[in-house]
């Protein structure tokens, strides 16, 4: 039922020149749940999330957020929708001209018009929630390690206490311990806020840690969707091959002989 859905995507298509990235894709994100979309590189995961966020304009299809159509919405309507969102980018995307605390407080100061002092207090609190001390607030992003940047980015995503948080490859490029730390922080933050979450990843460990629901994308379509606990026995050839990392299966890698 659409009333239980935070996001409803129907017939979404997007091509770049001749390359079709999303091909008539349907996706439901249930309210209050954490949906993890898995898929290999170049299957359209990032394009999907960017279309939902309005960073890319789809060629056709419908994206409803809280029952309101977002494709073709005015910039004011889109900005309203954005106020409900938080986003953790794959490369963290921290503003390197601003200190860490201003990065975290950015959505509060610029998006909500909060006074800088009050926003700084919240930023320091959010940094604490992701395991970073207040002294980190004065540093610049270039002075942080990759794991710390991810945590700052997570703090920025949750600073405005959004209704929905997007995670784009949250553990890519991190060591296994830091990946686990990030996964646990994501689960904790999403649960504490009672937010809906949409994560795209190819990390099966992340899926098991943070997902309530799962979906698999291949060649721009959702080829399987179900509870996250079912991925190991989905009965779907694509999912089985991906989960077990087999070279043989319905997903073909075009490899030419040397």
């Amino acid at each position: 039922m659409s009333t239980d859905l935070k996001i409803k995507v129907r017939g979404l298509s997007k091509a770049f020149g001749r390359k079709v990235v999303l091909n008539n894709l349907d996706l439901d994100v249930p309210r209050g749940q954490s949906l993890v979309v898995i898929g290999g590189s170049g299957t359209g995961k990032s394009v999907l999330i960017k279309c939902i966020l309005g960073l890319l304009t789809p060629d056709k299809g419908s994206i409803e957020i809280d029952g309101r159509e977002m494709v073709g919405a005015s910039s004011d309507q889109r900005e309203d929708a954005m106020r409900k969102f938080g986003m953790l980018f794959q490369g963290s995307a921290l503003f390197d001209s601003l200190p860490v605390w201003e990065n975290v407080a950015f959505g509060l100061i610029e998006g909500r018009g909060m006074k800088r002092r009050a926003a700084k207090e919240i930023a320091v609190r959010k940094l604490g929630a992701v395991g970073l001390g207040p002294e980190v607030g004065a540093l610049y992003p270039a002075e942080l390690s990759g794991g710390m940047q991810k945590r700052v980015s997570l703090a920025r995503a949750i600073a405005t206490e959004p209704e929905m948080i997007f995670f784009d490859e949250p553990t890519t490029g991190l060591d296994p311990i830091m990946s686990q730390v990030i996964n646990e922080l994501i689960s904790k933050c999403v649960n504490d806020l009672g937010a809906t979450a949409l994560t795209i990843t190819h990390d099966m460990h992340s899926l098991r840690e943070i997902g309530d629901q799962a979906a698999m994308i291949f060649e721009g379509k959702i080829v399987w969707a179900g509870p996250a606990g079912d991925v190991d026995h989905s009965g779907n050839g694509f999912v089985d091959q991906f989960v077990h990392g087999r070279a043989e299966g319905p997903i073909k890698m075009p490899i030419r002989p040397l």
Partner: peptide, 21 residues
Amino acid sequence: TMRVTEQIDALTTLSTNPFKY
């Protein structure tokens, strides 16, 4: 650099219009 490191996209997701900012 802001574009290729997704900082401009991040501005949009933080309810800030990159043209104005």
